[in-house]
Design a protein around this nucleic acid. Structure first.
Lengths: 148, 148
DNA sequence: ATAACTGCAAACGTTTTGCCAGCAT
DNA sequence: ATGCTGGCAAAACGTTTGCAGTTAT
């Protein structure tokens, strides 16, 4: 039995604001923005709707290592860079890779439907203050490594 | 002023177990396993050390949309598939893409140091029971969409 | 009438933290 | 003696959920 979803006022406004924003907001950043237009909306509603909009394909839940979920209102294929030091996200220009899926289909049981590509790096703010690369201490018992 | 990190017993055992495991465990899966060898280790220690090992480049914090952090003990370049329905992760075979970074360097202020590629799809268990693709309802006010 | 939805607050599970004792330097 | 670390427990945080009232079909 199917659920009939509706495009409610809250849902539409969340989507509009998400699209106007050219960033990659967390649920509560969206909440803060939407609240300017709908002061009584609740954070729970924002979570529920971001989830549903993502299922509809109208928004994307991003694949990121941090522990706050981030969303993206643009649905066309594009990739991201993430700063490994401060976590900042930005879009990267460039054509999506074609036929990547093909090359994996033969080697997995999964039914492949797409891909996500993130570049890693240092953002302009962090590139200067970045700690020097750390050399792995392999195996031996007590040993030490520098860090800031 | 720099911090001197040491390779402690806990840290080494966490790393060993992470490497033996050919999966993508959460912190508390690692905790359960390590506890068999060190019953008094604490979950906090596991979190702290997985974080540090990732900074060292001895482990990876994965880029995933779910809300539990997952780690990977293998440091050689490889990609993952994630089931969009149940969240299961698996490695995919195949050569890492070369020169991807080059193509982005010209168009971003970030200093690019690498990339992460995840394929999306349905795992064998989910591929049959997957709901049909949802058609986006664009813009118009009240409208409805089917879902399970 | 029924089913989907919202606001609210409480509940939940994950991750982080403060503290103190122990150990390596 | 100093400073990194681990265990423990509490706290913090992000996200989800139950409920009662509302709205669309």
């Amino acid at each position: 039995m199917k659920k009939k979803f509706r495009m409610t006022r809250q849902r539409r406004i969340i989507l509009e604001e998400l699209r106007n924003l050219h960033s990659h907001p967390t649920a509560d950043e969206v909440y803060d923005i939407v609240r300017k237009r709908m002061p009584r909306i609740s954070l729970g509603t924002v979570y529920r709707n971001l989830e549903i909009l993502s299922q509809w394909g109208l928004a994307q839940k991003l694949d990121l290592a941090g522990n706050r979920r981030r969303f993206d209102g643009s649905t066309d294929d594009h990739y991201h860079v993430r700063c490994v030091r401060c976590g900042e996200i930005e879009d990267v220009a460039g054509e999506p890779l074609q036929n990547l899926e093909e090359s994996v289909r033969s080697s997995t049981e999964f039914e492949i439907i797409g891909h996500r590509l993130n570049f890693l790096g240092f953002c302009p703010k962090c590139r200067h203050e970045a700690e020097e690369p750390l050399v792995p201490p392999i195996r031996e018992e007590p040993q030490s490594i520098d860090e800031k």
